[in-house]
């Protein structure tokens, strides 16, 4: 069986972590061919060729593929689909935009956010915001799947796959890119960071989120937030960790002033070590924490920042 894996390519650059995690999931099902698509994608293709377990890399470069627009990207994948039993991608917002479109064009179902591979036809995926796990067996000839990256380890480097170029499909010309507003930050990217420090409603204000950011910077961590903190305007939306935000699984996750709503837990409970700091000892976050500290965050967080 052969797997086509859509690499995560942003502005010509490979998102190595997300792509390498999807490679780990995909290897279980057959030979992995990575597709790097973009206005410029050659460098991303070269980087993908070095991922251990990649058998071949296809590079598709065309202006229409430049901003991860769904319609031309889906058309490209569909034009290549005949050679593959599985078409997969890391479950990023880009892939979630494109892959269901691919599936419908192939008249198959999509399996979104798969968190486990049972066999080549059977996959586990969280449903109800992570409150249940469903095992589904695909009856379709082609399986289209996005993989939740937080549950797979990244494949290592050391591969030397052959790189070929392929042509883009005709651009359906249905949409055009206007602009990207990417939050500029020196901190690591949230979904691939080794350490994440998140603040919740307990932080109380946008100004006081500086406490969270200081601790994060001391730990070299990414900053996250609960949905409650985002909805209260304390933190921008792209910091949101949870079922409706980003799903993370760092080595260390520090939850500050977060009560631990189910939808937040769904986004971080696969973290290796979880620390919770909350003044409410009844907060559900303590049920998933390895180390809990019942304390006023305004005293504990500066003290922790100093002590590290």
């Amino acid at each position: 069986m052969a797997v086509l894996l859509l690499a995560e390519v942003n502005n010509g650059e490979l998102a190595l972590d997300a792509t390498a995690k999807a490679v780990t999931a995909a290897r279980a099902m057959g030979d992995v061919t990575v597709l790097a698509a973009g206005a410029s994608a050659a460098a991303a293709g070269e980087a993908a060729a070095k991922i251990d377990g990649v058998a071949k890399v296809l590079v598709a470069e065309d202006a229409s593929l430049g901003h991860r627009m769904a319609e031309p990207t889906a058309a490209l994948i569909v034009s290549l689909a005949g050679d593959y039993s599985h078409i997969v991608a890391p479950a990023t917002t880009d892939a979630k935009n494109v892959m269901p479109r691919v599936a419908a064009l192939l008249d198959v179902m999509v399996i979104s956010d798969a968190s486990g591979v049972v066999d080549a036809d059977t996959f586990e995926r969280p449903i109800y915001a992570g409150n249940a796990v469903q095992t589904v067996k695909s009856l379709d000839t082609t399986k289209v799947i996005t993989f939740r990256t937080s549950t797979f380890d990244a494949a290592g480097e050391g591969g030397s796959a052959a790189v070929e170029t392929v042509s883009a499909a005709a651009d359906p010309g249905l949409s055009s890119w206007v602009e990207d507003k990417v939050a500029a930050s020196d901190r690591p990217e949230l979904t691939s960071a080794g350490v994440v420090v998140s603040g919740g409603r307990g932080v109380g204000s946008e100004e006081d989120f500086a406490l969270i950011e200081k601790l994060a910077d001391k730990l070299g961590a990414a900053v996250g937030a609960s949905r409650a903190a985002v909805d209260s305007g304390y933190a921008p939306n792209d910091w949101q960790v949870g079922q409706t935000g980003k799903v993370v699984a760092p080595e260390l996750y520090v939850a500050v002033g977060i009560s631990g709503a189910i939808q937040h837990l769904a986004g971080m409970k696969d973290s290796k070590i979880i620390v919770a700091i909350n003044k409410d000892e009844e907060a559900p976050i303590f049920q998933v924490a390895d180390f809990g500290l019942v304390a006023d965050l305004f005293e504990a967080v500066p003290a922790l920042t100093d002590a590290l």
Binding site: M109, Q134, T135, V136, K137, V288, G292, L293, A303
Partner: peptide, 22 residues
């Protein structure tokens, strides 16, 4: 197109400890 084989509770984490100080 997807046959639901089973639906289960998510894995729970082992209980941790409460520490007394920073």
């Amino acid at each position: 197109r997807l046959e639901v084989v089973k639906t289960t509770e998510p894995a729970t984490r082992a209980a941790g400890i409460i520490v007394g100080s920073v």
